[in-house]
Simulated scan of single mutants.
Amino acid sequence: MKTLVPDCAALQAHFALLRSELASGLIERDEEIDLCLTALIAQEHLLLVSPPGCAKSLLLDSLLKATGGSKFSILLTKFTVPEEVFGPISIQGLKEDRFQRITNGKLPEADFAFLDEVFKASSAILNTLLKILNERTFDAGEGSLRKVPLKLCVAASNEWPAPESAQELAALFDRFTLRKSLSPIRSQAGRKKLLWNREHTPKVSVHLKPTDLEAARRYARELPWSVSAQEALETILKDLAKEGIQPGDRRQFKAVGIAQAYAFLHGAEQVEPEHLEVAAHVLWDDPREQPQKVAQVIARIANPIGMRLNQLLLEVEQVLSSTDVRKLPETAKAAAKLGEIDKQLSELKSNDRVTRTRNYVREQLRQLKLASLEAI
């Protein structure tokens, strides 16, 4: 019986619904949701760096509700042994003079993996992990490599690799095509949702079959590039070189596939300059200064609207955090400022992100007015 694969537009609609459902539960994690889904579509891996408790594991668990499959999760330390990750050595095999691992329930048989504190693993684990992540193969001891079903690995760390260990961890660091630093919830609205909503696990109704994921990868790889997007990427790489940032050839090549997956995820028919925003999480090697510089260069060249939105959102949060709603003059001043920001947003070229931002600003303005009425 032939398996029917949904057409591109229908599949994009499924992903759009999934993004919405995930965002409804995961507070202020829209960008991380997009990166996780982009990595899944592009068949790459994602590294998230943040303090504990920023919903890194919950993101992958929520995604699993839509995709199904098995998950392997582990907190790595310098004392973690390979048997905990790849499976114990078969005693029966040793009796028969064979070295073989029993991989049931371990990383080599997982569809999804969450590796917490990944940089603390021993070299014995890292060397085998590299092949699983990059080539998706594993030698259990039979003497031949076999394919692993791994679709996506999300790794986490509380900190970036220390400079003194950067060289040792360089190969592993490079296996994560997408890399991002997370912050705790910042906005006033997000904090209220965190404190007073008792359930933050997303309710997911979308179901993506393995054939859907494979079709999504194929559609994304086939997505054409607009001339302006090609020119923007070439300009970005030139300007980064002027800043002393020169990502390797492999990372540049992978940025193309990541941008295609990101464009597909956003329902586009071709890659446009604004889709290069995702490359800010790809085109760098040193986490200390380069990510911010890369993001600035990409925003200036490929996505000035996105750059402006970020600036206006920062202004909104500064206004809200500095306003005492019990004082009517302060509230009136804050409302006027939000009204001015809303007007500036109305002058930007309309897209989904602009619309979401305007809706957010208007909701904060409404909350301010309600609070001022209650204070009277």
Rank of each mutant, 00 (worst) to 15 (best):
R198N: 14
L182R: 07
L169C: 06
K192H: 01
F173A: 11
H207E: 02
A263D: 02
T201N: 15
E234V: 11
V227T: 13
A220G: 09
A215H: 04
D249W: 11
D249C: 12
A216Q: 07
L233Q: 02
S226W: 00
K193I: 03
H200E: 04
A170C: 11
A261F: 06
G244L: 06
N197K: 13
F253I: 15
L182T: 01
T201E: 15
D212P: 04
E234C: 09
Q230G: 09
W196A: 05
D249T: 15
V227F: 09
Q252F: 12
G267T: 06
K209S: 09
K254I: 13
W225S: 08
P224F: 00
L233M: 09
E222K: 14
S205E: 08
D249A: 15
G248Q: 10
F176V: 04
W225N: 07
R218L: 14
A220Q: 01
N197H: 13
A189D: 05
Y219P: 02
A255W: 08
V227L: 15
W225C: 03
K242A: 14
P210K: 10
I236D: 04
K209D: 05
L208I: 09
V206P: 07
R221L: 14
H207C: 00
S187Q: 04
A268Y: 10
H207N: 06
D239C: 14
I185W: 06
G244Y: 00
L237M: 00
Q246N: 12
A220D: 02
S181A: 15
R186C: 08
R179Y: 05
H200V: 11
R198M: 13
Q270F: 14
G248N: 14
D174S: 02
L195H: 01
K209E: 10
S187R: 06
S187N: 05
Q230T: 03
V206W: 01
H200S: 05
S187A: 08
K180D: 10
S181R: 15
L213Y: 01
A171H: 01
W196E: 12
Y262H: 12
L169R: 00
